[in-house]
Design a protein around this nucleic acid. Structure first.
Lengths: 377, 377
DNA sequence: TATCCAATTGAATCGCACT
DNA sequence: TAGTGCGATTCAATTGGAT
């Protein structure tokens, strides 16, 4: 309420806003996104959400350990000849985005380490004021098949206002409610887009990088109001449009590829306005914190070199730096070594292995419980 | 053992490495980090870990590697100049870091949304090749008291090699062990630095942004080997040094502030190195001593004439005296024949081929493991 | 009908040493 | 330096067929 009043006051002093009738609401403008955005009036849009090409620079083919082939992003639209070319492209579309945004609008971009640092730096150079960087922690990412790096399990979003002193919309209360009455954090755990939500045609995915609706849902619920105009310059198969419709926001898309436009329009046509049941599935599940044995080593709760033993003191093992255990001649994880030594079909290392703690012999699970208690919010 | 031999072979072809006696190991070089790094020889360091200042309103005490002075602009209204000064400072210290790093060394930086995008973009521009961006997801972050944004609950690290084709160290197996036998992901949940670990003097924290040892523990265990030299140009109160000492790595620090240097030295003095047994980690098969299939034939672990088959019993092959396999019409190595028969791009014969052993069907790799265990010193 | 198992798949900068 | 051969390497979710 108070927020609305403030907005009206400011608008009264600013130039008259563009009437919505002059905007291509609910339409996908075909062609290059920069050209397409030029058709939109200055200061007429409340939010821009952009999922630009990542400039992945992939090498040769990649196969899984089972020999199957990984379907990579090889589309032409993700090919740039150099960082300089990518940067110029980025500055060009960001310039148009800045022009069409209202002074109190905000900008979201999403990317991976291939492009997000360039995006963020250019945004700052252009005067955008970063409000948060958000980490989308994928619940089910693709593994690193060759064991050469850490599993690339997240993507990064940047949320920015038009400038340091600019106002912006943040629905704090809605976010806190969505997060079981805890402040919404800058890391969001959400599954990747698959199952029924993933658009397919003839058994093949229509778009290689379709984003999950849950991601856009949270973005829009947090930083726009009902009736706001959301522009997506890289519309793809229209996740932004579908979520905007469900949440009662207006949308405009730009998209070069006819196939994507067609799939998007059909999809948005079918999108249902929000019902409460759907909302519930969007809410973040408070997953019980999983604690690996290695975490207790890293955080100093159990020191490498500590000697563990089973309850009857038949077996002993030394904790090593990486969280593995070393017995006389065998090594392994807390579970694997326990199983091995006992010759049992399986073993829960958390209850099998004990150590002396405060004068008492306790299972290592007790240390894990203490750790969880100490670090829980 | 085998690994050491390989390393020496490579070094023999490269220019002679800097003898460790010429490096200021276990020392904190006082003064400006760029000046301090200049005292370190070219290509002498295995890893640089840097936690540079975040504040973009810098004081006027920055200098370039050539000694010229950087004229800092600190006015609020001139963010663009402020970014330019920060970028120049970043390029300057990264230039020195790049010079002292070995060709197969790697660079870690940590930052927040204020500076990480600039850091990452400049690293890419300088030729560093990003291997991962890592999200440190704070288990207990400070809430956003005003409720104006999302709770800032993470920081970002970037891990990079010297270039696209450069080799680098990644202890895949140790990370997988540390994470309960699942690949280590790019999002790390770790508590912030508090409690006994947080250095305090007169009830006040000594350093405003002391990093948790657990973070450095994982970084170093993952991407350095025992005895490697780690340089931290923004040493602060010495978390990098303390963890390096614990993990049997050498360290060099640079730090301007005398108070931090004093606190760091005292702290590292008290840190206990791990003993040899605890320091060991699980080896990946890639670095483990190699056992050829032929060795198992020669030593009688597998007899010539033994019939191998794949798990589903679709293919069968006979072991020949020289360690090759013979199928119906084709012959080849354990890998080549498996690849051939399946029509796959590649095949690991060790896991593909099975035989009956003690009443169970096991991959031939299991026999190799038994051999390694039995012949280990 | 419920359950289980096998197969498929997702924004991926994915090997190394020798000739 | 490009080519070749050895051999190391995957997690969670979904889908569809078999039990």
């Amino acid at each position: 309420m108070g927020q609305l009043l403030v907005k009206q006051k400011i608008r009264a002093r600013a130039p008259a806003p563009t009437p919505k009738e002059l905007l291509p609401l609910g339409q996908i403008i075909p062609g290059d996104c920069i050209e397409a955005m030029r058709t939109i009036p200055d200061a007429s849009v409340d939010m821009v959400f952009a999922d630009p090409p990542y400039n992945l620079q992939l090498g040769g083919d990649l196969s899984r350990p089972d020999g199957s082939h990984v379907d990579a992003v090889t589309n032409d639209w993700d090919k740039f000849s150099s960082f300089a070319v990518y940067d110029q492209f980025t500055r060009d579309w960001l310039t148009e985005a800045r022009r069409v945004l209202k002074p109190e609008g905000s900008l979201w971009v999403i990317g991976s380490y291939h492009n997000i640092f360039r995006l963020g730096a250019i945004m700052q150079d252009m005067g955008f004021w970063i409000l948060n960087d958000i980490v989308w922690r994928k619940a089910n990412p693709m593994p690193n098949f060759k064991g050469t790096r850490f599993t690339n399990a997240h993507e990064t979003l940047i949320w920015a206002s038009m400038g340091e002193k600019s106002k912006y919309t943040f629905n704090y209360r809605a976010m806190k409610t969505l997060n079981d009455e805890l402040q919404m954090r800058s890391d969001w755990v959400l599954p990747i887009c698959n199952g029924a939500e993933r658009l397919k045609k003839g058994g093949r995915k229509v778009h290689p990088t379709q984003k999950p609706e849950a991601l856009l849902y949270r973005v829009m619920l947090a930083t726009t109001n009902e009736g706001d105009v959301v522009l997506d310059p890289f519309f793809g198969t229209g996740t932004t449009g579908a979520v905007a419709k469900r949440l009662g926001r207006e949308w405009i898309g730009c998209e070069r590829e006819g196939d994507y436009r067609e799939a998007a329009l059909e999809r948005i046509e079918m999108a249902l306005p929000l019902d409460e049941r759907a909302l519930k599935t969007m809410q973040s599940k408070r997953t019980a914190p999983k604690v690996a044995f290695g975490t207790l080593i890293e955080t100093g709760w159990i020191a490498p070199g500590t000697v563990l033993s089973d309850k009857k003191n038949r077996f002993r093992a030394v904790v090593r730096a990486d969280g593995s255990l070393a017995a006389d001649k065998v090594t392994g994880s807390i579970h694997g070594l326990g199983k091995e030594l006992q010759g049992a079909p399986s073993c829960n290392g958390w209850t099998f292995w004990h150590l002396e703690h405060e004068g008492q012999v306790k299972p290592i699970d007790a240390i894990r419980q203490l750790y969880i208690l100490a670090t829980e919010p």
